Amino acid sequence: MDIEIRNPWHPDDAKHYTTDRMRNDFLIQDLFIPDKVKLVYSHVDRIIVGGVCPSEKVLTLEAGHELGVDYFLERRELGVINIGGPGTVILDGEEYDLSYKDGLYAGMGIKEVSFKSDDPANPAKFYLNSAPAHHTYPTLKITMEMANKRPLGSVEGCNKRVINQYIHPEVCQSCQLVMGMTSLEVGSNWNTMPCHTHERRMEVYLYFELGEDDVVFHMMGEPQETRHLVMRNEEAVISPSWSIHSGVGTKNYTFIWGMVGENQTFDDMDDVDMKDIR
């Protein structure tokens, strides 16, 4: 199992990046390859983003040289959300069945983490976020019904959506990882606009429920130096603390957000006035 390393970026440098450089550094593609584990280790708050798609095999998370530990969760915590067919996460021999959009929090200290699918023809797609941890919290399976729900936006603003908080103090204890899912209603295609940054934590978005010909224009960069990435179904993007992270799609869509950093206060944001965006 290989771990791809992504180094951090200074905003003064990133404003000069070409489209190819932006895509190579911030965009994460091909997350769900059958019978493969793909992991990207970002030095921005040391988050690990990954995809596990077991088909014929049972797949296991391994520590690797990059982590310098004996097992993956020796000094880390893990969030998992399944966006594929039904499957199972196995934590030290205990099985947790995850259907579509079910989530799971696994705390520091679990030695064996494995994944399998119920049906090889309809494999699970386990999306992973992992952060360094300092304390062990209990494992918890989190369904969509258990998520803390925050409706936002309006039809008039083309951004009517529901934020579903999964790994969040209202639902689940964790060290620093916060994770959830935002669903846009039909007819809405904007997310996180008006935009914001949050200096105290970074964020990763995974966009999904997009058709083959649909795209999301993901807005990023400093508020006065914005750039965009064209993103397609089941692709993720790394957003440093200094960057906005908004998007507009050719249709409504769903995205999973994961945050790592200094605090877990969801509303701790540095809002940007629309008149100040460039």
Rank of each mutant, 00 (worst) to 15 (best):
E212Y: 11
R200Y: 13
R150M: 15
G157N: 15
M1Y: 09
V260P: 00
E94H: 12
G157F: 04
V40P: 06
G84V: 07
D214P: 05
Y41H: 12
E234T: 09
T60H: 08
A14Y: 02
G79N: 02
H168G: 00
S188Y: 09
H134G: 12
I142L: 06
H43A: 13
L27Q: 08
M146C: 09
N252A: 13
E234N: 10
P86E: 10
I256E: 00
E74R: 03
L98G: 06
T18R: 02
L140Y: 11
F266G: 00
G85E: 00
I28T: 10
I256K: 05
P240D: 05
A131K: 03
R201W: 09
V155W: 08
V171T: 07
R46P: 02
V260A: 05
V40E: 01
G107C: 06
D268T: 06
E203Q: 13
R200D: 09
T143G: 14
V272L: 08
T192Q: 01
S114T: 07
P34M: 07
Y137D: 00
T139D: 10
G187L: 11
G249P: 03
C158N: 14
E185V: 15
F72G: 00
D118S: 04
R75E: 11
S130K: 04
Y127E: 06
M108Q: 12
M231L: 14
R200E: 11
R6S: 01
R200V: 02
G84C: 08
L184G: 04
D12P: 05
P54T: 08
Q264N: 10
P223M: 03
P223C: 01
D118I: 03
A124M: 04
M202W: 01
L140T: 07
T197Y: 09
W257S: 10
L61V: 00
